[in-house]
Nucleic acid binder design. Structure first.
Lengths: 210, 210
DNA sequence: GTCATCTGAGACATGGATGTCTCAAAATGG
DNA sequence: CCATTTTGAGACATCCATGTCTCAGATGAC
């Protein structure tokens, strides 16, 4: 009966600890467990009671990050409506969890776990689909591959996370800075006419402005 | 007498090993020395003869990366002439060493070494100055801080490095993808008139398009 | 061919982080 | 107030990467 109560308490404890762990691990992926425990305000013994080992802890941090990013994609409803508007919603939804994304970016090939990797693939596929749709809608530039746009978007979100953590970027400016920079590069220019739909050469010499 | 010969031979060996080490470390910063040695085609014993320990190896990889990036800044002559042209030259010069930058991006706060950190600060300052100059020339958007642009540029170069290493991006497309995406977001739009030079608010509501 | 040098493979010691345990103190719940 | 549970501190044991050493074979100079 009280089982559920304990479970709930432990769940919140685990999340609190994971949040603290992210703060340390996103910067120093090799931080000792002592450090993580201290950052979480608990002892190393309790940390071991919550997570059976370092590997499990890292795994759960990764899962938390992926779930948060998935939730951001859900919140932004990235599969609905205009791609540009969806992207702007996604920026706002993802920036608060930028630190998690920073951790994922640094660690994402470090997982042997299928659960983590599969979840990762799903989210990246959703991003990819968003950019593809935007290209089909004529909103996103087609000279840049959707794969590269997905990757670059995630890299910039991670960069936002790092910059905020190190105090190089004000959290207030984060969403604006990300949206303006990335969308400026990814959106089709309004003044540029529709390029020939056939043979979209990867080398459009659009840069020459004599 | 033959001292110089040996020194020269060892120098090239060291660079070869460092190149191989980058390939491993940029992806898995915690890779064992065995792995690095195997990737370099030498034994762990020889690796220890070339570098007195892991710390020294990591340090030298970092220094190599910073020297390469500094050389790219030199090659691009980033302090000369039009900022946009300088940026385009920098993209071409930096992309071949993107893997090194990827390593630096993941590891750059991990150094206690003053020599490494100072060199890092210098290069970032040069990038920062380039963006500042571009903003004064009216070429680079002023709504985005030069600090953020510097950071984002480096993050994207690192992203290029990771993507190439994992085969997600063709090396041929790297410079184009980076230049188009980043410059698209960083350059002042040709059609946008000069914003009021006084009180450059960081919240230009340019995004609203009713 | 002979010599000096470099290299690779392995054994071995070491250090430090991790994992496990116990027990007293604190917190919680009735 | 008492019983139960959780927590923290510390003492270990263990594991593994690192660092060091030796020695036989390979490489290269002369």
């Amino acid at each position: 009966m009280s089982q559920m109560t304990y479970t709930r308490i432990m769940a919140t404890d685990r999340d609190t600890v994971l949040e603290a762990a992210v703060g340390v691990l996103s910067r120093r992926p090799t931080a000792h467990l002592d450090e993580i425990a201290r950052a979480a305000g608990i002892s190393r013994a309790t940390l071991h009671r919550l997570f059976p080992g370092r590997e499990a802890l890292i795994r759960e941090v990764g899962l938390l990050g992926l779930h948060r990013f998935a939730a951001a994609l859900d919140t932004a409803a990235v599969e609905d409506g205009d791609a540009e508007a969806a992207l702007r919603r996604l920026v706002d939804a993802a920036v608060p969890d930028a630190a998690l994304c920073a951790f994922l970016a640094g660690e994402n090939q470090l997982y042997d776990d299928d659960g983590v990797n599969d979840l990762w693939e799903v989210q990246i596929a959703r991003l990819h689909a968003l950019f593809l749709r935007g290209q089909q809608q004529g909103v996103i530039r087609i000279e840049l591959s959707a794969a590269w746009l997905s990757e670059a978007f995630f890299d910039l979100v991670a960069g936002i996370g790092w910059a905020i953590q190190d105090g190089r970027l004000a959290p207030r400016d984060a969403a604006f800075s990300l949206a303006e920079l990335f969308l400026g590069g990814a959106l089709r220019r309004a003044d540029a006419p529709t390029p020939p739909p056939t043979a979209p050469s990867a080398r459009t010499p659009e840069t020459d402005t004599p």
